[in-house]
Design a protein around this nucleic acid. Structure first.
Ligand SMILES: [Zn+2]
Ligand SMILES: [Zn+2]
Ligand SMILES: [Zn+2]
Ligand SMILES: [Zn+2]
Lengths: 152, 152
DNA sequence: ACTCTTATTGAGAATAAGTCTCTTTTGAAG
DNA sequence: CTTCAAAAGAGACTTATTCTCAATAAGAGT
């Protein structure tokens, strides 16, 4: 959790460190996530549509490559929200939160907990790992689904 | 986390509660997971092979359906271990553990932490959810990958 | 034990998220 | 301005998982 906020310049610097390049596409995608309302997650498809409505046509290939790259750099969090595809959100410690997911209807509640990040820090440090992100995912059955008689 | 150990009978009872049936396939699959060494996770394909070597030929369709069913009942945990497929393991509070994953090489370390389950209990109770499982997943870069100069 | 209903299985087709390939474009260093 | 490897775009491809449907069998009732 090195950085809390990326600008085009800091992104550029970090890319150049590894011999990579800052492209307009990467800058635009970073910008989308920076300005996304708290609690919103985007799939690759979501992102593609959102970009389109804002007049940016970035190919799906590039979108997939970019979110994967940014997740591996620690800029984005890759979330598994009980659907059949991944979601991404910006990774900022002061907005750090976790997810409570109903396994039946997939409804997701976000919650904060200060000690989770501490556990992540401690554990990764102990093993010599460089921490990128830690997420607590709770699988449960929501009140509505507990009442329903529908299968599973 | 209602139950800590399932027998064929308790599985049967829980299935019948919902109008479902205990089949030989379900009993065998539960048995596999009950007897799996701690720290071992199986994908659907792994499970299929393992069943085959033990002389049980259960179709992939049934395997996929069964692990999904058992995860939704809280009997199995469904894990996302940074590969392109899910893994399953038995869900037992006294073997409750979490995963530290290298985003570059996918090497995974298991670790225990007592407070995680408490956070999961507290959070789900507060929202009126019925807890099935909670997992802390840490994404990080392992020591070897930090030293490597290979891309991402 | 026999019957009946319907959940479940098995086989294979279908789906779709994500990756790969290859050509063209372009960032950025000198 | 040149150079060249990195990156983008288009679309083919892969493959984990789901779906469909006919055949089977669990379990309740008689
Ligand atoms: Zn979130
Ligand atoms: Zn629900
Ligand atoms: Zn594990
Ligand atoms: Zn590694």
């Amino acid at each position: 959790m090195s950085m809390s906020f990326y600008t085009a310049d800091s992104l550029k610097a970090e890319l150049h460190e590894r011999g990579w390049r800052l492209t307009p596409q990467r800058e635009i995608i970073l910008d989308i996530f920076q300005n996304l309302a708290a609690g919103k997650h985007l799939s690759a498809e979501d992102l593609c549509e959102l970009l389109h409505t804002e007049g940016h046509d970035i190919s799906l290939s590039t979108i997939y490559r970019t979110v994967k790259l940014m997740a591996r750099m620690g800029i984005l969090r890759e979330l598994e929200l009980a659907e059949d595809h991944k979601h991404y959100e910006i990774n900022q410690p002061h907005h750090h939160h976790h997810h409570l997911i109903c396994v039946r209807c997939n409804q997701t509640i976000e919650f904060k907990n200060e000690s989770v990040l501490k556990i992540g820090d401690k554990t990764s440090k102990k093993e010599g790992y460089h921490l990128l992100d830690c997420q607590l995912t709770i699988h449960a059955v929501c009140p509505a689904c507990q009442r329903s008689i529908l299968p599973v």
